[in-house]
Nucleic acid binder design. Structure first.
Lengths: 227, 227
DNA sequence: GCAAATATAATAGTATTACTATCAATTAGA
DNA sequence: TCTAATTGATAGTAATACTATTATATTTGC
């Protein structure tokens, strides 16, 4: 993926920002250090004032880029899902067999993010942690319907649709492709959180990626695909 | 269940409150109206001041019962899972076949909550909505480890363990019983949220309980149980 | 190279949030 | 009825979540 770094840019729906954070140095700092601070403090304790101090700028300047911290989190989440979709795309391109495409897509979407591709302003490992811990707060809130109309969840939905299509290619009569995929995507992140904080809710196996193993198996059994 | 209403009380771990809200009228109001207000405003916009005004009391009085709104939400969530576990218990008692016990437990944990048993101070339908939308915020936060030590998640974990035991009865070598159950429990609630707000992430089928159907099937296929 | 446009910093200010503290009034229990 | 516990009333603080204004840089277009 290295050779694509400089040429590919992830485009984010402008509704989520007031001023494009990729259009300036300060904007880039807001993304990068915003990511760091949200990871450190947790979303609830994170404020634009703290971020501004941290990057030696001012609160007012940060507000010029994002209406509020909710939208900054939405931006980061949208970026993450675009990046994930791009990974899926790269890994399934030119592969004819839909079962293998599904398997590879599942792997992309459930495996741990360890290496830091530093694809752009954002540190993918930290962003992954944020997505695990904070991203559901973007939709689990009263503004979900208007945010949805603004397109905040478009990328996520299109990612789910993309995998659902592979499933339908394998089993055209399967009734619940979207449910299955969103269950797996959300579940994988929850299980990683559980294994760090509430291990009795999961099954941790040292030296094995239990999460990927479990969800891959689950999907294959649900669709009746032999291993 | 009616005849048990007056005799059975759900006991909540005292670490979550400063003063037992079931020990006074005001406490009961805090639970009941807190539930209503959180449902109306969403957890982020909900404040103790608004609650106090709503029940014609004062902020300071509310703070006498709960350290903060996070703990009130934790209380309500704990109550919900105790209630759910009790439902599971009632529905699986005296049934020998573990497959049927599993099926009944799954049904309890995935089906829609429509009828309002008014089991106590809390309106179960509203509480169910709150659990769907807000409850993951109790653990998706920086205090999760100390909250866990205080026992905030004990009931939830014991519920998961209970069902995991049924699974192990059916398939003693199954590697991921906790993962499977927590995936189903969390997933069922997410899917209900999706079908209300982000329907492209799920598969809504009118007149059918797709959620229960899907997760029951998923579990049975994962465990290789014939329908 | 200069004017115009744009971006940022500095400062100030407001309403609300998330509490804590104190004390008086009321109620309940023994 | 006396005492203790509960609640209400009031006050106060630091932080949050913004908005507005103005001055100062910096970039860009010509």
């Amino acid at each position: 993926m290295q050779d694509l770094q400089s040429n590919i840019a992830i485009k984010i729906n402008p509704n989520v920002y007031k001023k494009d954070p990729l259009s300036s140095d300060l904007g880039a700092k807001i993304l990068r250090q915003g990511c760091n601070l949200i990871d450190d403090l947790g979303f609830e304790k994170f404020t634009f004032k703290k971020l501004a101090n941290h990057i030696e700028s001012t609160e007012a300047s940060v507000y010029r880029y994002f209406e509020n911290k909710h939208n900054l989190l939405a931006y980061l989440t949208m970026w993450y899902w675009s990046w994930a979709e791009y990974k899926v795309l790269l890994n399934t391109l030119n592969i004819d067999c839909p079962k293998i495409r599904l398997q590879r897509a599942m792997k992309c979407l459930t495996e741990e993010v360890i290496e830091d591709a530093e694809f752009s302003q954002v540190n993918e490992v930290k962003l992954n942690q944020i997505v695990i811990r904070e991203s559901s707060k973007v939709y689990l809130c009263k503004t979900v319907d208007s945010d949805n109309e603004s397109g905040f969840f478009h990328v996520y939905k299109s990612l789910v649709q993309r995998i659902a299509n592979i499933i339908l290619e394998i089993r055209p009569t399967f009734k619940y492709p979207h449910m299955l995929i969103s269950t797996v995507i959300e579940g994988a992140r929850h299980q990683r959180f559980f294994s760090d904080h509430l291990p009795r809710l999961t099954d941790v196996i040292v030296g094995e990626d239990a999460v990927t193993d479990f969800y891959l198996q689950l999907v294959q059994r649900e669709l009746g695909i032999e291993d």
